[in-house]
């Protein structure tokens, strides 16, 4: 039930932003539509709705956005240099990294963050074994543990505080 209410609030918020500036008609339609969506799909949204009450998680999420933005900027400079470099300094390969995150949404965020940061692209996630297969544009090490340290750890620490 709580999961449905959270989904209703989020859906209504997005609706209000989409139909900005909102008037009476828009709000009424928004309530009906997000109510229907929340009624039918609300149980799929989250399994642990009590996590939404923790304030520290939002603060960590904000910190994560800052870290992520900076890494994303560095990634772009890096790839842009590789694109215009006349000799194309590529050293690509697919390596294996481990992760200890178990939660679906945390794994999704981790994989997406890895894709948007320097020279790495997540190819597959093996949830049962806790492995990530990452395409790396400049392979610095083939060893699983060292690669985990370089690629995964800086996000994993923050994401564990947010979602686990």
């Amino acid at each position: 039930m709580r999961s449905k209410i959270i989904l209703f609030v989020l859906g209504f918020l997005v609706w209000c932003l989409l139909s900005w500036p909102t008037d009476g008609q828009h709000v009424l339609v928004g309530i009906v539509v997000s109510g229907l969506v929340a009624y039918f799909t609300g149980d799929l949204f989250t399994r642990r709705p009590h996590l939404f009450k923790h304030v520290t998680r939002y603060l960590w999420f904000f910190y994560y956005l800052l870290v992520f933005g900076w890494e994303c900027f560095k990634a772009n400079i890096d790839v842009a240099i590789r694109v215009i470099h006349p000799y194309k300094p590529l050293n690509p390969g697919i390596i294996k990294a481990t992760t200890s995150l178990k939660n679906d949404i945390a794994l999704t965020f981790l994989a997406n963050s890895i894709t948007l940061t320097p020279g790495t692209l997540t190819v597959d996630v093996d949830k049962a074994g806790g492995f990530l297969y990452v395409h790396w544009i400049d392979v610095k090490t083939k060893d699983t543990e060292k690669a985990t340290k370089i690629i995964v750890e800086r996000f994993e620490k923050i994401l564990r505080k947010i979602f686990e």
Binding site: L90, N91, P92, G93, I94, I95, K96, T108, A111, N112, T115, L116, L121, T122, V123, D124, F131, Y133, H135, V139, K142
Partner: peptide, 30 residues
């Protein structure tokens, strides 16, 4: 990123080879 992840996975499953000067491919080993 989700779309590019799906594309990369699908092309690996479909047998698209990596560049011949690639260093390693742990995914096909596993």
């Amino acid at each position: 990123p989700t779309a590019s992840h799906a594309l990369a996975r699908a092309s690996h499953k479909a047998g698209v080879r990596l560049w011949e000067r690639s260093v390693c491919d742990e995914y096909s080993n596993s």
